Structure formats: C-alpha cells, structure tokens
Amino acid sequence: MSLIVAARFDTFDEAAVAARKLCTEGFTEDDIHTFYINTAGEHARFPIGGDRVADPDSKGGHFGAVAGASALGLLFALLGGLIAARLAASILIVIAAAGVGAYLGALAGALWVVGRGRRGRPGVPPAPDVHPGLRQAGVMLALHVSPDRDAAARKVLSEAGGRDIERAQGRWLNGKWEDFDPLRPPRRVDAPSMAG
C-alpha cells in the first residue's frame, strides 16, 4: 500500500496549476493523478445507475406505504359506501373510493416514514454510520508521496487552493490511484501552517 495525499479543486485548470507547483517541489508526473469525482449518487455502480441498493433515508418506507394504503383505503371505502347507500348508487363508487384512498394512503404513508431519521431532533446531525462523510463533486488531484514528503505535499496543495485535503492508503500503479473508491469516506487532514 502507498501513502496518497489528495485534494479537491473546482476546475481542471486549478488542478493543473497545483500539479505544476508540485513538480517544481520535486514530485514527478508519475506521482500525480488528476480525475473528476461525480456527485454522490451518480457513480453508476448498478446497471440502472446509482451508488447504493437503497437510500439510507428510505428505510421503512414500504411499511408506511402499506399502513397508509390500508388506513385510507378503508376510510375511503367506508365513505364511498355511505355515499352509495344515500344515493342508491352502484358498488363501483365503493370500489373507486377504496382505490383512491389506497393510492393516496400509500403515498402519504411512505412520505411520512421516509426520512424520519433526518427529521429526528432539530439541530442534531444524523448518526455518522447512517450518513458517512461524502466527497464533494469536483476535480481530485491525488499524489503518491513518501511519508517524509507528506507535510510538504499537503502544504503545496493547500497553497494552490486545494480543499478537503485527505490522506489515504491505496494501490498506486502506472501513475494512477488504482483502488480509489468515491464512496469510501475520506480521512481529511489539515494542511501544515505556513510557519511549519
């Protein structure tokens, strides 16, 4: 495993300026890998797209849909039955009312349950295991460094405008961070101070 220091930039031009600064500090082009990271959810890990099998906030949504469909479907069927009895109308009104109620209930029930973890208590962030730190979209400049050059690399990246500087252990092969995983939470580190 190799030590890798990386930073995020807004444009490829900004990353190119940082790469030139790194080269003037003695790093080689084979030690620098620049690539773009998509927004979370757009990494196409599955055939139909997306990063995960399900959104963590959707947990329990199907139970809310079934409960809402049952409750409102029954309520609308009763109301439809009362209306049908008063107007001496056909049973189709009861069936239609039950269907409309079930549809609206499923929608309302699912929406009520989905995201409840986020609504929890105001001002309290969600648990980190539910929503681990994600990388922001942007241009990533990754740098293969030796442990003794780590601080210098972070300082140059910071001075060049790099944000969200992180350190990782990974496989560096042919000038690229081969095992980079955009879904793995980053281990962010601070850049050394100008005086250090």
Rank of each mutant, 00 (worst) to 15 (best):
V139L: 00
A108G: 11
F27C: 09
A153L: 07
T24S: 15
A84N: 02
A15F: 08
G26R: 09
I32H: 03
S90K: 02
G50I: 15
G64I: 11
D57S: 14
A110Q: 02
V130L: 13
R118G: 12
F76S: 01
Q136A: 11
A44V: 15
L74T: 08
V124S: 05
I83M: 10
I83C: 11
L104I: 02
A110P: 01
H62F: 10
V94I: 14
L75N: 06
G80Y: 07
G123L: 02
T28N: 12
A67C: 08
G26N: 12
T24V: 14
G117A: 04
R118I: 07
I32T: 07
L78C: 10
Y103P: 00
A88S: 08
H33I: 06
L82S: 11
R149Q: 09
D129E: 07
A89S: 12
S90E: 05
G26Y: 13
G99E: 01
I83E: 00
A54Y: 14
I48D: 15
A137G: 09
V124F: 05
G133K: 04
E42K: 06
P128I: 09
N38D: 12
L92F: 07
R118W: 08
A15P: 00
T24A: 15
G49R: 14
F76L: 00
R149A: 12
A77H: 06
K59M: 13
I48W: 14
P47C: 06
N38M: 13
L78S: 12
L134G: 11
A108H: 02
V139A: 00
M140K: 01
A152D: 06
G73Y: 11
A96D: 02
A85I: 03
F63W: 13
